[in-house]
């Protein structure tokens, strides 16, 4: 695996001068993933924060080929790009390996782009799909998505006098993608960059469809001080709210062991979206959330102990 020094001499896929918020969590994820490719990459992105902030005409922050089509179709679009590449290789019009990477936020992945993702993965296109998962529709102002965790307050399922935020747990998309029997599926977090880089390298070395779900703290939607982006990402892992694991050809493996699990409150209390959970009356909900995390972690350990 390449170390940071080795990666730092590769060309940065992103320039500065993009319009992501100060302290945003996704540019690093994009850089970590793309820098892990030894071969040239071509990027396809869904509509969302990433696309909007990096391509405001006439300013593109992309140093690598980049295509944006629409919100729900980055996987389908990428499948077309990959098919064109295959046709050109067959007709001897192109030489050399290219890695195709599709990005989507959780809205573009869990919700509106889910069918497109599922179809492209089932068809077996040789591409890596990366979800930068900030657990709500941040680009349009923090609306709830299928990735929003139970108890989080969003603008379309807010906490209020008679509501404690989202009532249902998020869907487990990483598991759903594993059920597609892909050669490589992983869950990662930007705060554990070497883990993410290793996973991206593995994905690029694996032919066929790959999926990585990367948790991305959003200082605006989650409500925390901008310098804490990486720390909160790590706390999600250390509390087992967001365990790091991979599923390689059906073999499950936790890639970051958590020997002393921190209470979820340590992760939640730093974020405004969970602030209401610490008000009197929500003790049971907090306990339930802890129970849910514990249960999921135990189940994951049974599937693939570190």
């Amino acid at each position: 695996m390449a170390n940071l020094k080795e990666l730092s001499v590769r060309q940065d896929p992103l320039t500065g001068g993009h319009r992501a918020c100060a302290g945003c969590g996704f540019p690093q994820i994009v850089r970590m993933v793309l820098l892990s490719s030894k071969d040239p990459v071509v990027v396809i992105s869904a509509t969302g924060c990433l696309e909007v902030t990096t391509t405001i005409f006439p300013f593109s922050a992309w140093n690598v080929p980049f295509l944006h089509n629409a919100f729900e179709n980055s996987a389908a679009t990428a499948s077309g790009v990959e098919a064109a590449y295959n046709a050109f290789v067959r007709k001897n019009k192109i030489k050399g390996k290219i890695n195709f990477v599709a990005f989507g936020g959780d809205g573009g992945t869990y919700d509106i782009g889910f069918q497109s993702l599922s179809g492209a993965m089932e068809r077996g296109h040789d591409l890596l799909y990366v979800c930068y998962n900030n657990e709500a529709y941040m680009n349009t102002g923090v609306q709830r998505s299928g990735a929003t965790p139970r108890g989080a307050s969003t603008t379309t399922e807010p906490a209020g006098k008679v509501s404690s935020g989202k009532t249902r747990p998020r869907k487990d998309l990483t598991k759903i993608m594993a059920a597609h029997n892909l050669p490589y599926v992983a869950q990662a977090a930007g705060g554990y960059y070497m883990d993410l880089i290793k996973k991206a390298e593995k994905a690029f070395a694996t032919p066929g469809p790959k999926f990585i779900n990367v948790l991305q703290p959003c200082r605006l939607g989650w409500g925390y001080k901008p310098e804490l982006t990486m720390e909160i990402s790590r706390l999600a892992v250390q509390t087992c709210v967001w365990p790091l694991y991979e599923v390689e050809n059906g073999i499950w493996k936790v890639t970051m062991n958590v020997r002393e699990k921190k209470p979820i409150a340590e992760f939640l209390k730093l974020q405004d979206r969970f602030r209401h959970l610490f008000k009197p009356g929500n003790e049971q909900l907090l306990a339930d959330l802890q129970k849910e995390v514990d249960k999921n972690w135990e189940e994951l350990l049974k599937k693939g102990a570190p």
């Binding site: 629409a70 179709n73 389908a76 077309g80 790009v81 098919a83 050109f88 069918q115 068809r123």
Partner: peptide, 22 residues
């Protein structure tokens, strides 16, 4: 390269991707 997509939305999306690739 024939792509048997899972919807017409994806058909046109894949067409856009492929055409953008030249």
């Amino acid at each position: 390269e024939y792509i048997p997509v899972e919807s017409e939305h994806s058909a046109m999306s894949a067409c856009v991707g492929a055409a953008a690739a030249g």
